[in-house]
Design a protein around this nucleic acid. Sequence first.
DNA 1: GCTCAATAATTGATACGTCAACTAATATAA
DNA 2: TTATATTAGTTGACGTATCAATTATTGAGC
Lengths: 143, 143
Amino acid sequence: MSNSYIDDEKIINRLYEIHRRTVPKFESCTGISQTRLELLHELYEVEEISQRALQKKVNIDHAAVTRHLKQLEDKEMVIRRKDPKDQRFTYVSLSEEGRLKIIHYREEKERFISGVLHDFSAEERKTLLEMLTRIQHNIEHFE
Amino acid sequence: MSNSYIDDEKIINRLYEIHRRTVPKFESCTGISQTRLELLHELYEVEEISQRALQKKVNIDHAAVTRHLKQLEDKEMVIRRKDPKDQRFTYVSLSEEGRLKIIHYREEKERFISGVLHDFSAEERKTLLEMLTRIQHNIEHFE
DNA sequence: GCTCAATAATTGATACGTCAACTAATATAA
DNA sequence: TTATATTAGTTGACGTATCAATTATTGAGC
């Protein structure tokens, strides 16, 4: 009762620290950043998609999406082209090379995630996901 | 069973998204960043502390600590002085003004956290904290 | 006492996310 | 059809975390 707020604070601080620790670890394990792999994963699921639609899927700022895709284009992992019908749209797709590389990245990601959750039972995972979903909802609708 | 990995992925992605959403929301609600408030909170608990000891407490990179403290010094919230006995150490303490301001920040933080966890029972909070602690441990000891 | 190792703090380079301002292209409405 | 609004994408400024390299100071062994 009396220490309940202290624990609440610990939850929020823990979330923050988990993130800080995950970022470098994820990248050193998989060889790619979490966001960038998420973008590639979405591209993997489709033939071609506009940057706008992709941005809505990953829910990241437009600016960040543009920069990631430009860098991925430089690395020849994705191909970008303008829609001839509506020049405002840029369509993005995976190159063959990109499609191959992703497979390896995703294996490493799977290994990483398995390690992070290795001592969680199926029920625990379910509970955790449900709780995180609620937290996310609460943050989005706060104030 | 067959979709268990998909859910694991959702957990990790959710953690990532929670963080991204929390950062701007926290700052707009409280008027200060989470890390900076954590630093101030540690300073609030003591008379004076070395940057090194402070860094160990908050567990953030040295460089980030230095930069935060310099900015807080510019805003006259903290005072820094070298240890005359050992010039390598810099001791940091809150200014009177800093000490006053923190009270307000912490009230806002409490309001924020209450909002984020408002629909969690005491048991759920306990379970969640325990799970997050395990995840953090797993990340730190992975590989 | 002097050299070399260890430690605290700082600075530089890099990465990446946000918001805001801007450009270019298209749609709408008078 | 022409002025205005909307939309997609880009760029700039900023904040802040990481790692690596550097500086300054102190400690330890000879």
